[in-house]
C-alpha cells in the first residue's frame, strides 16, 4: 500500500511501497503536483521501475515549468534503486 501525505507547504511525504500496481493507482495524483516540491521519502519502503517512472515524469513536468523536485530522507535500499537507475546524480537528492 502506498500513500501520499501533504505535510507543510511544499513538502509531500511518500509512504509505503510504490510498485507497478500502486503507480497505476496513484500516478495521476502525484502528477497533479504543479509547484516545486520536496518529496519526503522517510517512509517510502520500496520502489520499482514503475514508481521511478512516475517520479521521472513528475520531475520533467516540473522542470519544464521552472519548478524543482527534491527527494529527501531516502532509506538506503531505496537510494540503492535510484543509484542502480543512474538517477542519484541526475535528480536532486538530499
Amino acid at each position: 500500500m502506498f500513500e501520499i501525505r501533504m505535510l507543510e507547504e511544499g513538502t509531500v511525504r511518500l509512504a509505503g511501497r510504490l510498485d507497478a500496481a500502486e503507480a497505476e493507482r496513484v500516478g495521476d495524483e502525484l502528477l497533479a503536483i504543479r509547484e516545486s516540491v520536496r518529496l519526503d521519502c522517510s517512509e517510502l519502503d520500496y520502489i520499482s521501475s514503475a514508481g521511478i517512472g512516475i517520479l521521472i515524469e513528475l520531475y520533467k513536468r516540473l522542470q519544464n515549468t521552472g519548478h524543482t523536485m527534491t527527494l529527501v530522507n531516502l532509506l538506503p535500499r531505496v537510494r540503492s534503486i535510484f543509484r542502480y537507475a543512474g538517477l542519484d546524480r541526475l535528480l536532486r537528492i538530499e
Binding site: 517512472g53 521521472i56 520531475y59 520533467k60 542502480y84 537507475a85 543512474g86 538517477l87 541526475l90 535528480l91
Partner: peptide
C-alpha cells in the same frame, strides 16, 4: 539502459 543519459533523453 544508459544510466548516464540525461533524464530528458531517457526513453520509457
Amino acid at each position: 539502459v544508459d544510466p548516464s543519459r540525461p533524464i530528458a533523453e531517457r526513453r520509457a
